[in-house]
Write a protein that binds this DNA or RNA. Sequence first.
RNA 1: GCGCGCGUGGCGGAAUGGCAGACGCGCCAGACUUAGGAUCUGGUCCCGAAAGGGUUGGAGGUUCAAGUCCUCUCGCGCGCACCA
Length: 957
Amino acid sequence: MASGRRQYPFHLIEPKWQQFWEKQQVFRAFNPGEEIPENHPFAERHGADSMVAGRKAPPKFYILDMFPYPSGAGLHVGHPEGYTATDILARYKRALGFNVLHPMGWDAFGLPAEQYAVKTGQHPRKTTDENIATFKRQIQSLGFSYDWSRELATTDPDYFKWTQWIFLKLYNSYFDPEWNKATPIEFFKDALSEQPKFKNKWKENPFLAGTHDAYTKMSAQEKELVRRRTLDNKRLAYVSEQPVWWCEQLGTVLANEEVVDGKSEVGGFPVVRKPMRQWMLRITAYAEKLLTDLDTIDWSDSLKEMQRNWIGRSEGAEVEFRIQNSEFRITVFTTRPDTLFGATYMVLSPEHRLVDQITTAEQRGAISKYKTEVAKKSDLERTELAKEKSGVFTGAYAINPVNGQKIPIWIADYVLASYGTGAIMAVPAHDTRDFEFATKFNLPIVQVVQPPDPKIDWHGFVEDGTSVNSTGPEISITGLPTPEAKKKITTWLEAKGLGKRTVNFKLRDWLFSRQRYWGEPFPIIWKRDPAGNLYHEALPESVLPVLPPELTDYKPTATGEPPLARAKDWVTLPDGSTRETNTMPQWAGSCWYYLRYLDAKNPNAFVGKEAEQYWMGASSPQPIVESPQSDSKLKTQDSGLKSTTPGVDLYVGGTEHAVLHLLYARFWHKVLFDLGYVSTPEPFFKLVNQGMVLGEDNQKMSKSRGNVIPVDEPVQEVGTDALRLFEMFMGPLEMVKPWSTKGVEGVYRFLGRVWRLFVDENSETEFEQAETTVETQRRGELLNLIKLNPAIRDVAPTPAQLKTLHTCIKKVTEDLDGLRFNTAISALMVFVNEAMTWKTKPVSVLRDFLILLQPFAPHLAEELWDKLHSALRIPHSALSYAPWPKFDPALLVESEMEIPVQVNGKLRDVIKVPVNADNATLEAAARASEKVQQFIAGKTIKKVIVVPKKLVNIAVG
RNA sequence: GCGCGCGUGGCGGAAUGGCAGACGCGCCAGACUUAGGAUCUGGUCCCGAAAGGGUUGGAGGUUCAAGUCCUCUCGCGCGCACCA
């Protein structure tokens, strides 16, 4: 690039306006109750007291970017795509009269800084701070209108104090199924009361060996133990000793979500199952709400679908099977209880707790050999070998409850311990996997469903049909269509106490602890009771934040003991209790950062109530604030001023967070909502995923391919306005699209044309000569040498000019509302192409154009806005708050319009008719057309379709 | 395998069921220039001299009218993946 002459002095304009915005705090967003400085443009537009209690505050618009993890590599041109889109919207909404919240911060806890610390001994905080500085410099060089006064970093103790605080809320709450919401644990304590009315609650308590009466007879100490275990078993944050994903290389456990194809998502290292004591968050309690509330938010279908798949709800039944010559019973989960008569064998997962108990002596060797083999396999191997089914017979038999048949019990690794009950009834005739397995091991295959189309083979037919061969001594569903058969047999099972309707989810509880240094410490300590039982206890809120200890060695220990355990002084408290040494996962900080922005400096709460209600709560439509500056004719556009939405109005980020971050954040938000801390059940009302920007070779940008384009490159060559414009001009926001250096030059040329539309070319030559002689620091002043284009005059626009302008206003406005930035930019180009041909360029028209351009190319627009008004001595306020021009449809109407005429659907002519022509006139004009006559001559006209103001179509035979 | 999305010029992409290819890139020609990799003007889907005909991955269908709606099919991308 860098070819030829510079299109316009962006190198002077861009720093100039960035400094201006910074100095004037132009993009500061004001909270309810705040007084606004008199000279601030927000005050000029809305009044200095507009946010003070008693006055109606302007409607809010909260537009949020997914905050980045500041890596050492800096930004490439893919990063600012989403940021540019949100910035354009933020500037547009400001122009419409909204109070816009547009913040930025840093998701700064994370592995890379820690790994660097392990290698070099440099404290992760230092690395993190340096990376934040780099990211901030680069992001600021792009001229985004963030309110930097609300900047936050998840690693800041003033921030993670509240992350820990929210953890305490989770710890001190349980999900109450009757109220269907998170509830302070104090309320559950009632259920431990010895009052008779709570007796029924005791039945389900796994910590009571006997009954409520047994409890009343216990010693105080025993009661305390039971009480504690009962509560701990209910908390939303709980400790569990269960097999978790352990990654040797990373030296930590990982969440299900961080394990992809049996490897760590970060680094791609192998992971193994290992039983460890871990903190879990009970996200499964919210499975149903997380699923159904998707219907209340405006996200893309594909994204919602990804979340639905992840939550994985399926309805079915649990059925209990007796085991022959044994007291044990095995419960299976099935979505097809109607196929119960076709269950010809049963399969347990190798990890099922009953395997050893039911295995017969003869089979013991084979079973234990198989179990060992399976345990050795990583998850990756287990899925890779999935094509070939394997398994071993236990020697035991179960009794099919519907027909009393004896069916063999196998174990096989195609049955997962982690889903359903870890056991299945196998119906080989109507399940693909069971069919494969039965075929391989020669197990009987019995048809129980007849496909609707008799030509379809019933072997392996898994869809709905009609039940057949399904009659037992007590129940028959033969002849019933699948849905009814399901219903009938489930009802029968329930009546017999053999089973029950069940809903199952794929979603697992969230493994919430990590063996790392660079994360939030848990506000938890461990103690022992007099009997020596270890138990955990929350630290009081008053001691938050719990800071991590200083260390010199950040390496995890080989045993899985977290690095924090090395700080013996820190771990052990004076009273002998010890601190929890795990830290929270990186996701914790990003679960609520959007709430901290609302009130980022609040020392007393994670967010102030008033601020939360204003920015997150839904509000009713607001009256439009009329600015004294606004053109009398041009009122603020009202299209964007409908009632504001609950939650974040627009959230933009990459698909990589489609399940993890977005599911976790929704979960936390729902808990906070249930506990009364926030006012909406969902955090993000509208969400858009920007598509990835590929390299010029159409490949994903990566160091190894050498196709990475750092943002600094185009910023140097063509300026940030051109970069911003091209980011949006490439194509629709959601689409994956390749970068194009040539394309950048195209929009750069466009900005050059805009420049030349406004400035006097002679003065520009003068400027360029002067620039070569003046030292760098003083060059900014040279911009004053550039004079306004003499063709710009304060005259009334012609109807044609107004039409060009208003066509552009309409298109840009509608496209911005629909996030169609690429076509909005093309509308601006069309305007400029047209305006270049005008001999006289009316100020009022160009002024409105600059307001339209401002969101896209704010630096250039500010410079020209300033020049335009100064040169003509028109008083003006900041462009950033200039009211958006209103489109006037009357100006687009002309006396005549062109109407296409088709014969048999084929275009034959375009006729000019008066705009108000009625159907008869249109038809007559169409028939009169010479070209049309050629095609209808000698033929019968069967029908004439006239669409007013659209077209005429003549059907002939 | 299942789910979601997408197939339009040489390229990125436009088209509330109503003139396919806006806008930009590239390319061609011209103007201005010592020069042009700056700028400006014009041209640029295919066949055809023209009239006209053809054209939105392919095949059907609905409709006066289909890139757009429906069915089947092929190809690509993303997600999930033995979820009972």
